[in-house]
């Protein structure tokens, strides 16, 4: 497998890319193979700015929290869709164990734009109570499991062409 040969990015490489991308412009700490990064993002010119906190330990998967404004407060008692944790809200941005995110991918080019996308659908969900960004929930009915299989096949097909072109510090 070609993909298997791609080397995982180190925490300092991820830190450098987060620093260099204007989309994730912010500041953070890098310490002993782990990083914490904070940046302000907005999903549209008609939207709020949100403060993201990204935590990443080398060899692990990145965790994304929204520090402000309070997502739960804005949701006015409703449970947030597509999060790992309601409070503090930790966003579920991709399907684990598929090829959507792999350790060689730059956080600033995957996780950060996905968080922006999540926030876009979140703001609209606040008004309509309907999540229009699609996705899956664990323990979902069979139909969704099938679509997840399709997705794995699709993703596997994609990785040989599109994803291989993924630029980055590899």
């Amino acid at each position: 497998m070609i993909l298997g040969r791609r080397r995982a990015l180190t925490a300092s490489q991820q830190f450098l890319s987060l620093q260099s991308n204007e989309l994730s412009a912010g500041c953070g700490d890098l310490h002993a193979g782990a990083l914490v990064w904070r940046c302000d993002v907005t999903p549209s010119p008609l939207s709020r700015f949100y403060r993201l906190r990204i935590e990443f330990r080398q060899g692990d998967t990145p965790a994304v929290f929204v520090e402000s404004p309070g997502l739960n407060l804005l949701a006015d008692g409703r449970r947030l869709p597509h999060v790992y944790l309601q409070y503090p809200p930790r966003l579920c941005l991709y399907l684990p164990r598929t090829f959507e995110w792999l350790p060689w991918m730059r956080i600033d080019r995957t996780i950060v734009p996905w968080a922006v996308l999540w926030l876009f659908y979140y703001e609209e969900w606040l008004a309509s109570n309907e999540w229009k960004g699609g996705g899956e929930h664990p323990h979902a009915p069979e139909v969704e499991t099938r679509s997840s299989k399709r997705l794995r096949i699709r993703t596997a097909a994609m990785r040989s062409n599109e994803l291989l072109e993924a630029d980055g510090l590899v």
């Binding site: 944790l85 399907l95 734009p113 664990p138």
Partner: peptide
């Protein structure tokens, strides 16, 4: 100039 492509993703979730 500072745009970043949004790659394909599938939002996931948890019950907790």
């Amino acid at each position: 100039p500072a745009s970043t492509a949004v790659r394909a993703n599938t939002f996931f979730g948890s019950d907790d």
